[in-house]
């Protein structure tokens, strides 16, 4: 464990807290992509299948359960719970996620660590996580203006990715046996997707102002 990874995980948890607060307290899922949340649920459920046979630490196992529980709760609330379900707009949030899931599944089958079923599923989850934010970013782009809590949510997710990048660099230089090409590649792609958002986030929040983020 290093400080980058720990802060990355905390930032990830913060993103769940922000989103859960927004949809439970604000009673609205407007501006939130259910498609992205469903992708995250698939990502966590497939990657953390190894909860049943891999044990690395209590910290890890506990957070795996937290991530599965939070993403499932978010999907459940937006899809089935009133009044939130009526605030979800399927016409706006219509990114064709089959075009993300399909290629990631093929990539998982072809490019993985050692050709075992779990390694294929695991690689699939890594590839899918890299692109899972796309429906959310497209939704924000369509709306043009992003509500504060939603922008904080995306910013927390982006911070998590950025901190994980630093964690990989740190581990590469401090550990002898640390080499994870699949994770590094997918993680770099994923972090890159946030760059444009962060530019606009910075523009609207600088100087202590709390204006909504405007996207062109």
């Amino acid at each position: 464990m290093n400080i980058f990874r720990f802060l990355g995980d905390m930032s990830h948890i913060l993103s769940f807290v922000i989103l859960l607060l927004k949809i439970t307290q604000g009673k609205s899922a407007a501006g939130i992509s259910l498609r992205t949340q469903e992708l995250y649920m698939i990502v966590f459920c497939s990657r953390y299948l190894d909860l049943f046979w891999n044990f690395s630490s209590l910290y890890n196992s506990f957070l795996k359960v937290v991530f599965i529980a939070c993403s499932s709760a978010i999907v459940y609330i937006i899809r089935f719970k009133s009044p939130q379900k009526d605030t979800w707009n399927p016409e706006l949030d219509n990114f064709p996620i089959q075009y993300l899931i399909g290629p990631c599944a093929v990539a998982g089958l072809l490019i993985n660590q050692d050709w075992t079923p779990f390694e294929m599923i695991w690689a699939f989850s890594i590839y899918l996580e890299a692109v899972a934010i796309l429906p959310q970013l497209f939704l924000l782009q369509k709306q043009g203006e992003v509500e504060n809590l939603t922008s904080h949510y995306v910013a927390a997710l982006g911070a998590y990715r950025g901190l994980y990048l630093m964690n990989w660099v740190y581990r590469y230089f401090t550990e002898d046996d640390y080499l994870q090409r699949i994770v590094w590649f997918a993680g770099t792609v994923q972090t890159g997707l946030y760059i444009d958002f962060f530019y606009h986030y910075y523009q609207s929040k600088r100087g202590g102002l709390s204006r909504p983020v405007k996207l062109p």
């Binding site: 990874r5 630490s57 890890n60 957070l63 050692d114 964690n167 046996d177 640390y178 080499l179 994870q180």
Partner: peptide, 10 residues
């Protein structure tokens, strides 16, 4: 050689 990485990250 290198051992496969442990899955110790989230």
């Amino acid at each position: 050689g290198k051992t496969p990485p442990k899955k110790d990250e989230l």
